[in-house]
Design a binder for these strands. Structure first.
Length: 601
DNA sequence: CTAATTGCAA
């Protein structure tokens, strides 16, 4: 089962980097300010009353505060310590939080259920499930019981690692202790099902929740499943669940609506998106920066950048500040229509407005320059990214690699492929696919085959996309027989050749002078429930054009047009060229007219 | 003082 794509570690980690601040300068500012803040942090702690929970905004503050708390006599209550750990965990300083917790014991500070749950969560976040479980012993030692939160946290940890059996065991143990699952427990389990793409199990849990009698489904569990269905473009099912929650008087919120709007947008149902938008506003649920960003992104993907700009204007008018994601979407919109100057302007605007530029921002720009064949500019941006302390991820590198390949700079692509591992990025199947394709298209058959062997050894999940590249590559190298052999062996590998596979094979056969066999394959496509598309027709027609078989060309063009496909510019040019020279067939002139007409559409 | 829901790049 496919695991759904989540935000990469790096794009998240580095999104807070501030552009244009030299390292030395920033540490000097930091150092100078530390004298004042250190004193005030401690003063704050020593205030006897301490009505407000201590607030820390960074790791350094937390360490200073915690150490001063450990030295106080009598020490502050466990609640104070736990508050600091909690805030550190929220800042994702999990290891630091664990280290501080370890200093509590020797100082005689006894943890409570909150403290231990936070530390358990920290271990879970670090994938240290063994250490996480070992803390259950600590509960016994201090004479307290883990609660539903503790168990939920542990279960989540196991589920994220796909260790379902252990999660289930914990669920049993929790029930044994008379601890009943609540909304959040179910919410966690449901989210886990959704992340694995198992919507059925998610809905089953929702039904279990209704029957349990201990808790009732709420807006969050409904939103979780609705979002998951929308991501799988099962919008009709999502809308059914949506009606269901309304009928149960569970009020949808901005997140529910945003998920639905995203779902219909992905299907290109703009009218439906607008209906939902109006509906939510009529219920006094107002679109937020997420909602607007989806609208901006959808318009951009449809090439409507001007409209996207006006949505950005609208959100500013409504007092919602576009953020990095909004601007990244807009930038990608300009990249998609090839307006790189405007894309760069948005990039500069982000910096000007104080929005952080992140790995996405650079990746989008790099991808844009690559598409426009401005590979040197792409490479320059890639370099700039490093200078700003951002680490390109697999996608960034793959984009640039693709750019190099398409410009014939295969060595640069290979170099980058090797280098990405140096900055901690493992090439994935797409990275391999890009390089493999590049090697074949640049006549590096041997190197391509070596790479393919490596892919097999790495136990990558080689799908039909990879085999399409391989078959096409063999054809390019003039190894049509090998390509055909491989094509025939696909089903034995459990792979189903798709339209693209067939089209690639047809092109290979045509280029190898085997047009008759190519036509036979075209006919077989119908039988295999894989009907040819416009690309297939254009390919085989070009094949017959090269053999100057006018009759076949005319027949196939007619067939293609009957099916509602049309000749592309290249094929049309060749057809017109052939027919105009073929004086024996003046009767074919109407066909030329038809073709030119369809081309002008 | 602890645990669950939404957006961008190949």
């Amino acid at each position: 089962m496919m695991v759904r794509k989540t935000a990469s570690f790096y794009s998240y980690c580095y999104c807070n980097n501030i552009r244009g601040m030299p390292c030395l300068q920033s540490s000097l500012v930091f150092f100078a300010s530390s004298f004042h803040s250190q004193a005030s942090i401690i003063r704050n702690t020593q205030t006897k009353t301490m009505r407000h929970p201590p607030h820390v905004t960074n790791l350094r503050e937390a360490l200073i505060l915690f150490n001063s708390m450990l030295r106080m006599r009598p020490p502050p209550s466990i609640v104070r310590f736990t508050q600091v750990l909690s805030q550190l965990a929220k800042l994702e300083h999990y290891s630091a939080a664990i280290n501080l917790y370890k200093q509590m014991g020797p100082s005689g500070i006894v943890p409570d259920v909150y403290t231990l749950s936070i530390v358990i969560n920290c271990f879970c976040q670090l994938n240290e499930m063994g250490l996480s479980l070992s803390l259950l012993g600590k509960f016994v030692k201090v004479g307290i019981q883990p609660d539903v939160t503790t168990f939920t946290t542990l279960m989540k940890g196991f589920l994220l690692l796909n260790r379902v059996a252990e999660a289930a065991e914990l669920f049993g143990k929790m029930m044994e202790q008379g601890c009943m699952p609540n909304e959040i427990t179910f919410g966690t389990l449901i989210k886990s099902c959704c992340m694995k793409g198992n919507n059925r199990a998610a809905v089953q849990l929702l039904r279990k929740m209704e029957q349990s009698g201990h808790c009732k489904p709420n807006v969050i569990v409904y939103s979780t499943i609705i979002d998951s269905l929308c991501k799988d473009t099962l919008v009709a099912n999502a809308l059914n669940l949506f009606s269901e929650m309304i009928s149960k008087d569970i009020a949808p919120n901005v997140i529910t609506y945003t998920s639905l709007i995203h779902g219909v947008c992905k299907l290109g149902q703009w009218t439906e998106a607008m209906r939902l938008l109006n509906e939510m506003v009529s219920k006094n649920i107002f679109p937020n920066v997420f909602t607007f960003s989806i609208l901006v992104d959808t318009l951009c993907k449809e090439g409507k950048v001007v409209e996207a700009e006006s949505v950005v204007e609208l959100m500013i008018q409504r007092g919602i500040k576009p953020d990095t994601v909004t601007y990244n979407s807009l930038m990608d919109g300009y990249c998609l229509v090839g307006e790189m100057e405007k894309a760069k302007k948005v990039f500069d605007l982000m910096i000007h407005k104080g929005s952080n530029v992140n790995v996405y921002s650079y990746s989008i720009l790099i991808n844009g320059y690559c598409r426009r064949k401005q590979i040197d500019e792409a490479n320059r941006v890639f370099q700039e990214m490093f200078d700003e302390g951002l680490v390109p991820n697999t996608i960034t590198c793959t984009s640039l690699m693709d750019g190099f390949c398409k410009e014939g700079r295969i060595q640069d692509a290979q170099k980058l492929f090797s280098k990405m591992q140096a900055f901690g990025q493992l090439p994935n199947i797409q990275s391999y696919a890009v390089l493999l394709d590049g090697l074949f298209k640049n006549q590096q058959l041997t190197k391509a085959l070596v790479l393919f062997r490596e892919m097999e050894c790495r136990k990558l999940n080689l799908d039909i996309v990879i085999y399409n590249i391989l078959i096409e590559g063999l054809c390019i190298a003039g190894k049509v027989e090998s390509a055909r052999d491989l094509f025939c062996r696909l089903s034995s590998k459990g792979l189903q050749p798709n339209v693209r596979t067939h089209t690639i094979m047809i092109k290979g056969l045509c280029d190898g002078g085997l047009v008759t066999e190519a036509e036979k394959l075209l006919r077989e496509m119908e039988e295999r429930d894989c009907p040819p598309n416009d690309c297939t027709y254009n390919t085989i027609i070009r094949g017959f054009l090269y053999t100057k078989d006018t009759l076949k060309v005319v027949g196939l063009v007619q067939e293609m047009m009957d099916r509602g496909f049309s000749a592309d510019a290249w094929t049309t040019e060749l057809i017109v060229d052939l027919l105009s020279k073929d004086e024996a067939n003046p009767a074919l002139l109407p066909l030329i007219e038809k073709l030119i007409f369809s081309l002008s559409q």
